[in-house]
Design a protein around this nucleic acid. Structure first.
Lengths: 328, 328
DNA sequence: GACAGGGGTGCAAGCGCTTGCATTAATTGG
DNA sequence: CCAATTAATGCAAGCGCTTGCACCCCTGTC
């Protein structure tokens, strides 16, 4: 049905191996022959079948990208950047959505393993042990988790959390709620660790609430608890949760930032557009996507090169934070 | 390196063809043999190599999904739904971002053609002719475009545009700007056709402005033109553009909805959260993603079944529209 | 008791491609 | 002018799998 190497060979009067070489090792074929083959190929609309090639070479020119929730606005910029970077390396990209489900993560990695050159795990929820095990079955690269021996790009949320808590404490807030993320999130633990340390040295009380769903809904539902805890400020696991929190707070009769200050993390596009505009820790998601793809693809060449790249974050102060009771 | 059918065959003392059959035609193998094979497979961690299988069967169990811009909030819910639906059919999904570029669309379809069972084109920008041609190389399904002979799911934006214009005219607006979308967009033409007809029968003047980039930026830049045209209401190609328009209008000193009413299309998550909350035509994107995948996969079975499914849209009235001068 | 029928399995070709090796022709140095 | 390279191509095996066909053995039938 489809045009194969054989058709091109026939059309240009050479052996199939010559056609093959024209595409995969052009320097081995005579310039005249090459152009004749190329001409026939062009005319017949021939395209090498990558799957067939992969069977022999072991290189598929595909990569897998696994995220917890495509519809969560944090991911699309990362996916877009990764896809574009992959394309630069002539790779295509499988996208899988795990719905925040650990079992699904494992299943999907295994399912994809045979048809990709590597899998990119973004903010995985599964255990380190499992990740290490999977990395023996297929090259892995991870965004937002550090495991020795596995290439990773991590956004420095610890630094971001520190900045956020310092900002809040500096505004006079003495009781700060920390809305943690999903169980299994490395990022959430990092944030907590850093926020706790920062709060201590700033002599502020940190109340940890959670785990929460990393969605607007997660923020809405935890709003009452925040109030009950007597917090006048909150740092949320991500912007969506922060936005939900603001809604929930508003529904409970509290105003932002007058009564409660709210800081998010991620700086998704949305955050510039809500009212009040969200103060948040900006994470370089697109850069992370690009870097991760590069690491994944480089990794194949040099197995020892498993550096971890760190990306800076920064605090973007907008309208959801204001002076706390301590400054009155 | 990886465990193959041959390893399983050796481990369970049968021929490779028997192993093959226990996975692809279990009813042909004796129950005892089958469970023995399954046990060895399980123990060795065997997984059939789909690419190798595809070489013979022609079925890859992959599908391609092509969108103009992953980061445009319109797409993620659709991608998510499509991915999830594909998975139900045991298919994986390639995602490609064309950056609104026609040449890229064609290239990507061709590049993917050999390793998928079909390609899903979402709001393609290329010509019908080209689509028809491509559909001869690989099964296609389309979202938001009708071409006879090609399965499609279309969201009824014409109806939505009618509702929107009626709403605006009913509020007393006599001059309505229509911000059209990118060149090549079928949806944009549909909206225009319907809005024009509706405006005529509502005795309102419709000023068509564009083409515009289907982004926030596109809306910002067209704001002055809207004002200059003397429009007191605008219908934008999509929500992002509407939100940008509101920003641009605000920057130019006009208030929404007091001075200008704005209606978007899509009802992306964002639209509930901006200020003012956006009045918009809700399109069932997730349902469209699911339906399109189903059609694509069903299409293989029955080539004549190229129905077009139509999905209703509805007007969601929020805070960006208000009474016009005609009602004063 | 011979034979048809069918269930279960093995055999081998082959999907579209790559690649080590053999073959041939052209080139070069001595 | 010949041996030794070197360049260009052909040959064939084989990547992991499926599948039509042949084969064997067990039942059941007349």
């Amino acid at each position: 049905m489809s045009v194969t190497i054989r058709d091109v060979a026939r059309a240009s009067g050479v052996h199939i191996s010559t056609v093959s070489r024209t595409f995969s090792a052009p320097h081995l074929v005579n310039a005249d022959t090459r152009s004749r083959v190329l001409a026939s190929a062009e005319q017949l609309g021939y395209r090498p079948n990558r799957a067939a090639r992969a069977l022999i070479t072991g290189r598929t020119f595909n990569i897998g990208l696994i995220v917890a929730d495509i519809a969560n606005p944090f991911f699309p910029p990362l996916i877009k950047a990764a896809e574009s970077q992959a394309r630069k390396h002539d790779h295509h990209i499988f996208v899988a959505d795990t719905n925040e489900d650990v079992a699904m993560e494992e299943e999907v990695v295994r399912a994809l393993a045979k048809q990709v050159d590597g899998v990119l795990l973004v903010s995985p929820r599964m255990s380190n042990t499992l990740i290490e095990q999977l990395s023996r079955e297929v090259p892995l690269a991870i965004v937002n988790r550090q495991i020795t021996g596995i290439p990773a790009v991590v956004m420095d949320v610890a630094q971001g959390a520190r900045l956020a808590v310092e900002h809040l404490a500096g505004l006079g807030h003495r009781t700060i709620a920390l809305l943690s993320g999903p169980r299994g999130s490395w990022t959430s633990r990092e944030i907590r660790r850093s926020a706790t340390a920062t709060a201590r040295s700033a002599r502020a009380r940190l109340v940890v609430l959670g785990p929460n769903q990393p969605t607007e809904f997660g923020g809405i539902t935890v709003a009452e608890e925040v109030l009950r805890a007597g917090a006048t400020a909150a740092l949320a696991y991500n912007d969506l949760m922060a936005i939900g929190l603001i809604e929930g707070l508003f529904a409970a009769g509290a105003r932002v930032p007058e009564d409660v200050s709210v800081v998010g993390i991620d700086d998704i596009m949305l955050s510039r557009l809500t009212r009040p505009k969200l103060t948040t820790v900006a994470t370089p998601t697109a850069a992370a996507g690009r870097a991760a793809v590069d690491m994944l693809l480089a990794h194949g060449d040099d197995r020892r090169n498993t550096a971890h790249v760190h990306l800076q974050t920064e605090l973007v102060i907008r309208d959801s934070t204001g002076p706390g009771p301590g400054s009155a």
